[in-house]
Design a binder for these strands. Structure first.
Lengths: 343, 343
DNA sequence: ATTTATCGTGCATACGTATGCAAATTGAAA
DNA sequence: TTTCAATTTGCATACGTATGCACGATAAAT
């Protein structure tokens, strides 16, 4: 296992030029003559030389590494986003360094420290909140942060979300139009802006049509908690006839409980609506009506915001909300007169 | 956005000691007196100093970065593995740099080049094959490689898989015991060792009990291709009464087609068995009988192999096969006398 | 008190690259 | 041919850290 690293100096020697010449050949935009470039590239090719990104970063101050902090990967929304983020950044010559963190403990601070040790050029947090102290540290280190799919009041923090309030409202309107009278909500984690906004929008939407929430339980974005909530809510005789679940991941658990434990028909007995539109929601086994978070556009906005900060320097802080459509499928009763535009 | 990096020199100045002293305080196992450590740590604390991992790597030759090359993240098996790998490596002070790659084109070579540019200490490939040239380059660079969930003949490559051949055999025995006579296989991609081994084991298992495969189509590990295969196979009047699908991800698509397009009962009309045991397989909507790939143990083996190479230097090449149990659930007919140990 | 061993510290250098500056080369214009 | 500008090249240094070496301090042993 010969550990033979080829350096620019060896290439220079072989090509009979200076080390700086080699460096310039591999630095886009530097001034080099064609024949010099040819000589160097030939030597580099023969020796198998490639510039050391880490050494380069020491000089340039850019590592071309983006730190991604993420809590869950079992909710399909996040691997999907990770894949898209990674592809988008890869196209710009950046790569993602992954940091898993549990949302409940305060390991976030520790992990963030490690993150900064790697001199990342930027940070994306997916479904993770930032403490004030952390935000300050990142600001002091000059590392831009974008919150993906989570909002926070701090004026220093960029964020990209769907329009969660409006999304909740749309769902309320849809369920009301469907003639549902007794409506439940198994909410997203109340410790998250997404969870709170969806709930607030949903309540507002119901209020607009003279309805109010019959029962509301915090599902914490966890399958088992949501499942238990479903049992609690729908075991009663005078159970609700509709439920909006704070994200698809929980909605699947809720549908499983309704259909296989409580032997209820969806949507005959209960209409179920989720939030996210993960790929699984479109599979016939669930065929879940849900509000789509346009992950493509969210990723796009995240990447362009982050690269803007990194490559152009200080920018305006972005608080981007992207509107998403309600994907009407088979898990909720279709209101009279609504076009059946099932997808 | 003040870009103020604190260096060991500034800490040294503040603490009234040399830069080397600061370095030693932050280098585990170095020789420092308690009072020196105290002074330095105090100064570091006040300035918010943290060692620059990249600069350190230039000296030590270790980046504490592991490159992960992965093709799919829509098959739940991989995000699950990614999460576990990341957690395990994080516990050892390593982190994962993600590289997405499509399996069909030859972007793998390009991506691998970028990978090595980052001076990664090791590489894990998940469901991705290595070309000979690549293997040589990694060997030359002294970077150990572990193939996760894929095998390859090259004697230089470590690999961790489940016992795919034996797994295929177990499934054959199970379906045969269930009295199935006409058995189909929608195989994993024939370009992958996992796909080939599972199919070979399955065929061998059938042969042992005097059966043979009725029909076999390569599903390429893709949902849509598997779905089309299911349509082709099960539309006929004399359709098979059982199918082994090369992984769970495809098996879900197959079940969807069987139940919702062809209106067949599973397992009444057709028994379906998958491979992987991703979390979704246990959800009641699918309740899929499947051969479990013990991802915990596979991750453990992967990490310890990799760290062995990195921290102890050259080792024996490991070709690890981990045996997994058949998870008996509701998607396949239960043979008489078999304990119903549904999980 | 003297010798010897042990430990802690500072000095200097190295890791692999990028870049300001000045020298050298090229080419065009006169 | 000469002059001048434009371009290309090499030299030297810097990035932030780790570590071999030699020296000084301290403790232990005689």
């Amino acid at each position: 296992m010969a550990n033979e690293k080829v350096t620019s100096i060896e290439v220079a020697k072989k090509a009979g030029v200076s080390q700086s010449a080699v460096s310039r050949v591999f630095t886009p935009g530097a001034s080099v003559s064609p024949k010099m470039a040819e000589k160097v590239l030939k030597a580099a090719e023969e020796l198998g030389y490639r510039p050391n990104v880490l050494a380069r970063s020491l000089i340039t101050g850019r590592s071309r590494i983006i730190g991604l902090v993420v809590a869950y990967l079992d909710n399909q929304f996040y691997p999907d986003a990770l894949e898209k983020l990674s592809n988008a950044l890869q196209a710009h010559g950046y790569h993602i360094l992954v940091f898993m963190v549990s949302n409940d403990d305060d390991g976030i601070d520790k992990v963030m420290g490690e993150l900064l040790d790697y001199q990342v050029d930027g940070i994306i947090t997916a479904s993770v909140a930032m403490s004030n102290a952390l935000t300050s540290r990142c600001a002091a280190a000059g590392v831009p942060v974008v919150l993906f799919n989570r909002g926070q009041d701090d004026v220093r923090l960029n964020q990209v979300t769907s329009d969660n309030f409006e999304g909740g409202r749309k769902i309320a309107a849809f369920l009301a139009a469907g003639g549902h009278k007794k409506i439940a909500h198994i909410a997203g984690w109340s410790g998250s802006s997404t969870g709170r906004d969806r709930e607030a929008g949903f309540r507002a939407g119901l209020r607009e049509v003279g309805l109010e929430l019959s029962v509301c339980i915090d599902g914490m974005y966890k399958r088992d908690i949501a499942a238990q909530a479903a049992r609690d809510i729908f075991s009663a005789k005078d159970r609700p006839d509709a439920v909006f679940v704070g994200n698809d991941h929980m909605a699947f658990a809720v549908m499983d409980v309704l259909r296989f434990e409580l032997k209820l028909d969806v949507p005959g007995d209960v209409s179920v609506v989720g939030y996210d539109d993960v790929p699984l929601a479109a599979w016939p086994a669930y065929d879940l009506t849900t509000l789509r978070q346009p992950s493509n556009r969210m990723v796009e906005a995240t990447v362009s915001t982050l690269l803007g900060w990194i490559e152009e320097g200080s920018q305006d802080v972005q608080k981007i909300k992207i509107d998403g459509p309600l994907m009407i499928r088979g898990s909720a009763r279709l209101p009279e007169g609504w076009p059946d535009e099932r997808l």
